[in-house]
Simulated assay, not measured.
Amino acid sequence: MSERHQEFQSRLKDNAEAVEKLLAALLSADRQPDEIARPERLMAAMRHGVLNGGKRLRPFLVIESAALFPDVARETALRIGAALECIHCYSLVHDDLPAMDDDDLRRGQPTVHIAFDEAAAILAGDSLLTLAFDIVAAPETRLSDATKMALILALARAAGIGGMAGGQMLDLAAEKTAPDEDGIITLQAMKTGALLRFACEAGAIIAGASDGERLALRRYGEAVGLAFQIADDLLDLTADAATMGKATGKDADRGKATLVSRRGQAWAEDRLQALVTEAEALLAPFSHRAGILIETAHFIANRRN
């Protein structure tokens, strides 16, 4: 194992622990100013959907993209990463519902609607979505109002109609009418790629970076987002549920086409390596500071769960 990979693994673990600790505090029973009450069952369902381990890859990308810029406080990037993780976890809680993907298992444990009920799962997701923007706007997030507005706009665009939520709608439609290859690329860029793109671009927004730096990180996020989806589709074909912590083979069972199912495993492996090369080139302007993000691209392309 290379020294850089060891550093990456250490930082991935340390950041995940820091994000988990912050999320636990944000999801405590303690009321915030202007909140009337925090219903116990709702908070339990939210914690079940969020505080269940995981690599915390999206907040990791926020923290590490922000770390490219020496003037950004880690605590600030951590809060934006936690906000993004709330959006991601809300999407998982809702995606698992019977009306969507109908999954009983997530990260090796019962999904929220199984552990509680469907109504609790819906409300937990709604509350996590709202909490994400609360975290960004809160005074504890020490950024200018203009920077907060830029983050809120970028996050809303990544999570909403033209991003993740819209991508889920296209995904549901794909069960009835198989999209062509361009349609698959659009669907995946929205459903999975948009939040990963935001995670990488967020560091530049927090830092008030130049347009060129922001674009480079945005494009890096698009490359690793596509790599993440191709790797996920590859694992869906080749891994088992115990390794993944969730059901596998569901896309094939539903007749949903993916780039991997269309092009094959060899194509997928070649495309993953090409995306890693592209990611490395996009980070070249950041020199040695980008070592961890380069290692992250390799990790995403070669992951096993």
Rank of each mutant, 00 (worst) to 15 (best):
S210I: 12
G163Q: 03
G264M: 05
D171S: 08
M43Q: 14
Q265R: 15
K176I: 05
A25I: 00
H94F: 04
N52A: 15
S2V: 01
L123T: 11
A242C: 08
G208Q: 09
K55T: 05
Q109W: 09
D251Y: 10
L283I: 12
I80P: 00
L123Q: 06
A189R: 11
M100D: 07
D102A: 07
L78Q: 13
E3P: 02
A73I: 06
L129W: 06
L155Q: 06
A146W: 04
V136A: 04
A290R: 02
A77D: 00
R79C: 08
I185Q: 03
Q109V: 15
H298C: 02
P70T: 06
A119I: 09
E181V: 05
A266E: 14
K13H: 15
D34Y: 15
R79V: 13
A242Q: 15
G264R: 05
R58K: 11
L105K: 08
L187S: 06
V50H: 02
S2I: 00
S91D: 06
G221V: 07
A156Q: 09
L128G: 05
L275W: 06
I135T: 04
H298P: 00
A115W: 09
T76E: 05
A24M: 10
A231K: 04
F60E: 01
R107C: 08
A66C: 12
E181G: 02
A207T: 13
D270I: 06
G264I: 03
D182V: 08
Q168Y: 09
G264C: 10
D34P: 00
R262I: 14
I63K: 02
A252P: 03
A241C: 06
H94E: 10
K13F: 11
A174V: 15
R197L: 09
A301H: 04
V93P: 03
P139C: 08
G291R: 07
D95S: 13
I300T: 03
R271P: 02
S127P: 02
R214K: 14
S144T: 15
P179A: 13
D126G: 12
K148C: 04
E35F: 11
H298S: 03
D145H: 14
D240H: 05
T296Q: 10
R56E: 06
L155M: 14
S144G: 14
E181Q: 12
E269C: 07
D240F: 12
A44K: 14
L172R: 12
P33T: 10
V50N: 05
D104K: 12
S261G: 15
D232Q: 05
L259G: 07
G183Y: 12
A16V: 06
F69W: 03
S28K: 10
R41P: 01
R31E: 12
D134N: 14
A29C: 03
I87H: 03
G125R: 01
C86D: 04
Q109C: 13
A66R: 04
N15G: 02
P98V: 11
G53L: 04
H94G: 02
I206T: 08
D236T: 08
R303G: 00
E269W: 03
E278W: 05
A120I: 00
M1Y: 14
V72P: 00
A77F: 11
H5Q: 13
A99I: 13
E3Y: 14
M100P: 10
I122Q: 11
I80S: 04
A189G: 15
R4F: 09
S210M: 10
D253L: 15
P285V: 02
A301E: 04
F60L: 10
E175H: 10
Q265L: 11
E295R: 03
A301Q: 06
L275S: 07
